[in-house]
């Protein structure tokens, strides 16, 4: 019985330590690229391969990202994976999977953009939205094409879609906003983890 109590005590102390050590997150945004071997070639039909690049967000990059976004990063956004897209040995573009909270859970979006940070397209790899099909349809997607960080995807310091720039999917304001904010966040990460580091 003493051993049992000691064991329980150790576990309790460890759990308490972890709960204090790691902050309570809001909604995790770190997203796994579920099917790179499938989706890379859908977004870049001319690609021949991709290179996975893991980037850590250090204190300096975090501050810059938060300043530009006007909002704090999620607590688990500490390390992100980007994918450099190759045609032979030529680097032709980038991919970054990113998740934001929609109306019915997380919307996982895979963003394709140029080396200059202009959006090419996106695909939703997972969502549970009522209007999931419409959010992933070309009519909504093509509004993002060619846009970069100079485009005000969302209203300042909010996650709310800027309807002057982008027409949200009908009856899916929250989902549309999540994608618009995801676009801004993805390009912000790219700016401070790639473009300004070179």
């Amino acid at each position: 019985m003493k051993r049992l109590l000691r064991f329980k005590k150790t576990i309790s102390v460890l759990v308490l330590a972890l709960a204090i050590y790691f902050p309570v997150s809001s909604f995790a945004a770190v997203c796994v690229f579920r099917f790179p071997d499938r989706d890379v070639y859908k977004l870049y039909p001319k690609a021949t391969n991709y290179k996975s690049v893991l980037k850590k967000i250090d204190g300096e990059a975090k501050k810059k990202c938060e300043d530009l976004l006007g909002r704090p990063l999620d607590s688990d956004e500490t390390e992100l994976t980007f994918y450099e897209i190759y045609k032979g040995k030529e680097l032709i573009g980038m991919i970054h999977p990113h998740a934001e909270r929609g109306e019915y859970g997380t919307i996982e979006v895979v963003w394709a953009f140029t080396l200059e940070g202009k959006i090419i397209d996106f695909t939703i790899q997972r969502d549970r939205e009522k209007k999931g099909k419409e959010l992933n349809a070309q009519e909504f997607r093509r509004q993002f094409g060619g846009k970069d960080l100079n485009s005000p995807f969302v209203l300042e310091n909010t996650k709310e879609i800027n309807t002057k720039l982008l027409k949200p999917v009908e009856e899916a304001d929250k989902g549309s906003s999540a994608i618009a904010y995801g676009a801004k966040k993805t390009l912000t990460f790219y700016k401070y983890l790639f473009q300004e580091v070179k």
Binding site: T48, N49, Y50, K51, S52, E84, Y86
Partner: peptide, 10 residues
């Protein structure tokens, strides 16, 4: 661990 070459992961 991801093994990488000039033209991507292999």
């Amino acid at each position: 661990y991801i093994f990488q070459g000039e033209s991507g992961d292999w």
